[in-house]
Design a binder for these strands. Sequence first.
DNA 1: TTACATTTGCAACCAAGTTGCATTAATGGC
DNA 2: GCCATTAATGCAACTTGGTTGCAAATGTAA
Lengths: 126, 126
Amino acid sequence: MGIVRKTKSVKLLLNEFDKNSSAISVITLIERLSLKMNKTTVYRVLDKLEEDKILHSFLGKNGYKWYAKCNGCSVSGHQDAHPHFQCSDCGKVDCLPTNILIPKIPNRKVDISQVLLQGKCDDCYV
Amino acid sequence: MGIVRKTKSVKLLLNEFDKNSSAISVITLIERLSLKMNKTTVYRVLDKLEEDKILHSFLGKNGYKWYAKCNGCSVSGHQDAHPHFQCSDCGKVDCLPTNILIPKIPNRKVDISQVLLQGKCDDCYV
DNA sequence: TTACATTTGCAACCAAGTTGCATTAATGGC
DNA sequence: GCCATTAATGCAACTTGGTTGCAAATGTAA
Ligand SMILES: [Mn+2]
Ligand SMILES: [Mn+2]
Ligand SMILES: [Zn+2]
Ligand SMILES: [Zn+2]
């Protein structure tokens, strides 16, 4: 069961994703909202927002969990299997609209493909 | 500084990778060698073997660390930027010889690309 | 065999994420 | 608006992958 009640915590979290177009790590959210809600609540609300296909999650550079807004996903499934880019300098993470072509792998049935690119973002590129 | 002394721990770990062609998670190695060496030693030796380009590491499904033998890498750098495949049924992980083409990303300089494919392996595919 | 730097074990620690449970608060019916 | 119901929250304790500091052990070159 996803989100049922529009609680203060739900609104606060959605607001973070509205004012910021890039992905946000759970760590950052917990810290940023530490005065407004408990970390357990952050985890639980994000979990439900993902269930509802409002957000999608993925693992960043060190295995930490990140979330970003979905784009054209319905409750029947996530549509946006896009790569993510993390800047090795500033740590910022973005969803890339690019499509990565995964070739057929012999003897294996691929269901999920997770692509994390690392390098320098525009701001950090000298 | 990488491996300097061929200690018992180094030999034991290398032996695990010799008798097994797929990748091995640190968790598995710690458990499998628990009677022979301390988990701290497992982490430290693996670290050095990676420095020496004998092994390479990557993060699996839940952000856990995995290691696999390198293939044609020299101390000057890892050559094998290949995708990894993890079976969602049995959990086994393999290095894929396949090459994934990463398209040019505007406004970003890509240094590392990390691809984790998930699905069913040959053994688990009905 | 000896000397000495490297490696190891151990125990304590760190931090991301989870769980159980009592309390609080959103919501629909009246 | 008020109440009853039940979802959502806070909190504290826990789990666990990974790290650190340091004293003891061990590999190696002379
Ligand atoms: Mn995304
Ligand atoms: Mn590999
Ligand atoms: Zn940057
Ligand atoms: Zn399998």
